[in-house]
Design a protein around this nucleic acid. Sequence first.
DNA 1: GCTTGGCATATTGTATACAAAATGCAAGTG
DNA 2: CACTTGCATTTTGTATACAATATGCCAAGC
Lengths: 226, 226
Amino acid sequence: MDGSSFPIARSSLPEAAAERLRTLIIEGGLQPGAKLNERELCERLGVSRTPLREAFRMLAADGLLVQLPNRGAQVVALSPDDVRDGFEVMAALEGLAGELAVARVTDNDIADLRALQAEMEAAHLQHDLPAYYRINRIIHDRLNAIAGNAVLGQTYRTLNARLHALRFRSNLNRAKWDQAVAEHRSMIAALAARDGAALRDLLIRHLRAKQQAVLASMNNQDSEIL
Amino acid sequence: MDGSSFPIARSSLPEAAAERLRTLIIEGGLQPGAKLNERELCERLGVSRTPLREAFRMLAADGLLVQLPNRGAQVVALSPDDVRDGFEVMAALEGLAGELAVARVTDNDIADLRALQAEMEAAHLQHDLPAYYRINRIIHDRLNAIAGNAVLGQTYRTLNARLHALRFRSNLNRAKWDQAVAEHRSMIAALAARDGAALRDLLIRHLRAKQQAVLASMNNQDSEIL
DNA sequence: GCTTGGCATATTGTATACAAAATGCAAGTG
DNA sequence: CACTTGCATTTTGTATACAATATGCCAAGC
C-alpha cells in the first residue's frame, strides 16, 4: 500500500448501525441480557431490518451479542467465568504488547507516555476518576500502538470492548488506586529501560489485579465504589 | 449455566453458509484475493442473498473476508506482516494455554497426549505428512481444551482459521520436522512435570519456528515442500 | 388448581423487488 | 493514439413482502 491512496471510508449502513449499537452496549444504553427487538431497533436507528441484521452478525462475532435461532438477539451477559477468562487473555495480550513495544519504542514515545503519566497522576491527586480512566485507557492504547502488531491491536480492542460491556465498576478503593498508579510508573520505567521481561511481568500483574477487582465487585453488591 | 439444558443448535441458513464458505476458504476452494460474486455464490450454495450477506459479515469479522463498500467481498490475502503479527499473537495465546493447562491437567489428559504423541511419531517415521499435520492439530487443540479458558479457545480458533487460510506449505525440511517432533515430546514432558514456565517457553519457541518457516516459504517460490 | 392443547398474535427468517453505485465499453476529443 | 466522457450493464445496497417459528392467552380436561 503506497501513501498516495485515500480510501474514503464511507461506512455502510450496517457498519454505522453496528457502531451505534456497540456504543449503546458499552455505555450501558442497552443492558446486559436485554432482548433486542428488530422492528423497534429499526425505528430507533432509522434503518430497515436487512442492514440491522447484518450489524447483529458483526456484533455477535465480536461477542457483544448472542443470537438464538428464531429467538432473536440479546446483549451478552458475561458470567464470572467469562470475566476471569477474558482478563487472563487480556493479560497475555498486554504482556505481548509490552515485549513488542520494548523493541520498537522511540524516545519520543517515552516522552509522550511520561506526559500522559503526569496527567494521570494529576487526575489521581484530584480524585478525578473519569479523567483517570480516560487517560489510563489512552496509555494502554498507546502501548499497543507502539507494539506495532495489527493483529494484536485488533484482538485487544475486540476483547476490551467485550469486557467493557460489563460496565464494571471495580471496587477501586484508595489503596488499589494508589497501587495502580504506581504500577503505571514502573511500566514506563521498564519501557524506558527497554526491559521487555519486566514490562511484560508488570502488565500481567496489573491486569491480574484488575481481574481480581472486577470479579470481587461482581460478587459483592456492596463493593466500594469510588 | 446448569447442566440440565439441552439447546438444540439448529444452525440457521447464514451460519450454514458461513461454515461452508469458511471451509472453502481454508481448504483452498476459494483462493486468497478471490472476488466473491453474490449472485453466483447464491446459486452455488442454494441460498438467497440475504443470508449470504449475513454470512459475509460473520466471516469478515473473523478476518477471513474483507468487504469493500459497494465493491463486494473478497477472500483475505495476508501480507507477510499479517503473518508475522498473527503468529506472534498465536505464540502468546499458546503460551498462555500452556500455563493454564499445567494448573488443570489430569493424569488421564497426559496419558491421552502421550498416545497422540506416539501416533504423531509413527506418522513422522513413515513420512506421512497429512497424518502428522492432523495429529499435530489435535494435540494443540487438546492443550487448549485442557487450559479450560473459553475466551482463549475462541480467540485461538479464530486466529488459527485465518492463518490456515494461507494454505501455507511451510518449507518443512527433514531437520525442521525432526525438531518439531522433538519439541512436542518436550512439551508433554513439561506438562507432565507441571512446569508451566517451561511449557510456555517451549510453545512460544515452537510457534516462532513455525512463523519463520511460513515466512520463509512466502518469500521463496522454490522453498522445499515435503 | 394445575396442566395441556390450540388458536391468535408477534417476531424472526428468507426471498425478492427496487434503488444506487460501480464497471466496462465504445464513441468522441485533444 | 492516448485520454476522457457518457451510456448500458452488472453488481451491490436497502427495503419490503411473504413464510416459518415462537410466544402468550384462553379454554378444556385431568
